[in-house]
Write a protein that binds this DNA or RNA. Structure first.
Length: 506
RNA sequence: GCCCCCGUCAUCUAGCGGCCCAGGAUACCGGCCUUUCAAGCCGGCGGCGCGGGUUCGAAUCCCGUCGGGGGUGCCA
């Protein structure tokens, strides 16, 4: 029984999005669960839409999630290289052998001609697939097209009848008629391989045992099954591998199994895309979602353990994950629940951990420097227990604590209008005086002093605390007052209270 | 159009013939607590798309129907 080898192979265009991350996660989990290998392969065959920055961003996002790979970019393995643009020679060899065996042929239609043919077919109610017009060109016809300056694509011959079937790990047996599948392009006119070719060749060459990918690739499977059979049947792949001097396939390699994961959809039930809002993993990182929560939540999109247990660490998941518990209906990406889970996780963090995770977020908001100044570090640590129960995502801490890191207080109009009115003037005067006279600047003393102010002015605690809150924070909402004031220096607090005295009206 | 996939509370899901007049979580609503905002605790609302079968018995099996999605590319 060969070891499990799974893979994640993003096309580096744009950011790693939640659907891709979920696919990567399921593969990673299966590798960890089975003690197998997780291979990362960059599929950059379509030069028009890929970029190195995108590839780097995807690796970064994967690293952030903690999905480490056993082979791939930056991690040498026995079946590299792991970037398809570095494997060009291999694909060329494969195509040549396919051509020589007459399993594939050159076709000279231009994209415009094909498009026109598709439109015609649609208008006449015929299937829009490739009609095989250039399937059996004579040498004469071929030369004529070449003289016209046409560059051919190479298409693989597909059966005209019969069926193809496979047992999908998620969906069970799937059967498709060959009559619905036309000869397809494996090599573009610009001499680059298509997904069908490169992906199939590499999965086989790298000894992948299970292909787990999005449902949107379900209908690509028959073509890859066929190509794979052809490649293995007459040792074409092995010949190409040695002709191009690539490492051979693992000794025990066979054909991979398949698992098609349900897609993740937006609120409109369509495949999740940019117009649905934040779909990039990086956006969630910046907003202050914790990676372990993203992993936990993503695992629950389409998979469940017992229907009751939801909070699981990556290790828990790796212990429990299997494709037979992956559902087959699309999941709507519901960030409400993500937020809730994130908030719960934040509550589990101790002060030091929370403070540390808060730092990059506060730095992003220009509240602190990258290694924070010592007094800021102390302040954040002191704030951590006050923030813990109040935020679900880290960035929510920013408005709550910003006034504590800034020189100037910005007083919100609504807060001033509501809370800085008589007898707030008396409250502020009394508070400034009382705080100034305190012997100890600590929570208990401050609390007692403010309670004393309430009594002195003859108002309830709320009426006493709110004006002080607005004076110091500029806002009617803040972390608990005495606890927070104790973290600031007394002079600042008293000065702010005095300054707010002028804002009191009516 | 054709092919394929899917259909349990608003959302993620459990359920694989009786344990379910359907369970958990999130969201929402109400109460308690309370210095703001939260948190916490307690309670509540809410679903098997529809129609036929099969069966003593169906959310679970079969057929049909409707609805949604994916594919149909020299994208992946």
């Amino acid at each position: 029984m060969p070891g499990t080898r799974v893979r994640f192979c993003p096309a580096p265009s744009g950011w790693l999005h939640v659907g891709g991350a979920r696919t990567a996660l399921f593969n990673w989990l299966w590798a960890r669960r089975t003690g197998g290998d997780f291979v990362l392969r960059i599929e950059d065959t379509d030069a028009d839409r890929v970029s190195a920055e995108s590839a780097e961003g995807m690796l970064e996002a994967l690293r952030w999630l903690g999905l480490d790979w056993d082979e791939g970019p930056g991690v040498d393995g026995p079946h590299g290289p792991y970037v398809q643009s570095d494997r060009r020679l291999l694909y060329e060899q494969v195509v040549n052998l396919l051509l020589k065996a007459d399993l594939a042929y050159d076709a000279y239609e231009t994209p415009e001609e094909l498009e026109a043919a598709r439109e015609r077919a649609a208008a006449e109610g015929r299937p829009p697939g490739y009609d095989g017009a250039h399937r059996d060109l004579s040498d004469e016809e071929r030369h004529r097209y070449q003289r016209e300056g046409r560059r051919p694509t190479i298409r693989l011959r597909t059966p005209d009848e019969g069926t193809v079937a496979w047992d999908d790990e998620v969906r069970g047996r799937i059967t498709i008629d060959w009559s619905t599948i036309g000869d397809f392009v494996i090599w573009r006119a610009d001499e680059t391989p298509t997904y069908y070719l490169a992906n199939t060749v590499d999965d086989l060459a790298m000894g992948i045992t299970l292909v787990a990918r999005g449902e949107d690739l379900l209908s690509a499977t028959p073509r890859q099954l066929l190509l794979g059979d052809l490649l293995l049947r007459d040792r074409l792949l092995d010949d190409a591998l040695s002709a191009a001097s690539y490492p051979g396939r693992p000794a025990d390699a066979g054909r991979p199994g398949w698992a098609h994961l349900p897609i993740i959809v937006g609120a409109d039930r369509k495949k999740l895309s940019k117009r649905h809002g934040d779909v990039a993993i990086d956006a969630y990182r910046r907003a202050g979602y914790l990676p372990e929560v993203m992993v936990n939540f993503l695992a629950l999109q389409g998979w469940s353990w017992d229907g009751v247990t939801e909070r699981m660490t990556a290790d828990d998941l790796a212990d429990r994950f299997s494709f037979d518990r992956v559902g087959s209906n699309p999941a709507y990406f519901d960030t409400d629940k993500l937020r809730a889970m994130n908030g719960d996780r934040i509550k589990e963090l101790d002060d030091g951990e929370l403070a540390e995770r808060l730092q990059p977020i506060l730095a992003d908001a220009d509240l602190i420097l990258v290694p924070p100044e010592p007094e800021h570090a102390r302040l954040i640590l002191g704030l951590a227990p006050l923030l813990r129960e109040r935020i679900q995502i880290l960035s929510e801490a920013v408005p709550l604590v910003a006034p504590l890191f800034r020189e100037e207080v910005v007083h919100e109009d609504a807060a001033v209008a509501k809370h800085l009115r008589a007898p707030a003037d008396r409250v502020l005067d009394a508070a400034a005086a009382a705080l100034e006279e305190l012997e100890e600047w600590d929570v208990a003393s401050i609390h007692a002093a403010l309670d004393g102010v309430a009594e002195q002015v003859g108002v309830g605690r709320g009426k006493a605390f709110q004006p002080v809150r607005v004076a110091v924070f500029g806002s009617a909402v803040s972390p608990p007052l005495p606890e927070t004031l104790a973290l600031l220096d007394r002079a600042t607090v008293v000065a702010r209270i005095r300054a707010a005295r002028d804002l009191v009206h009516g």
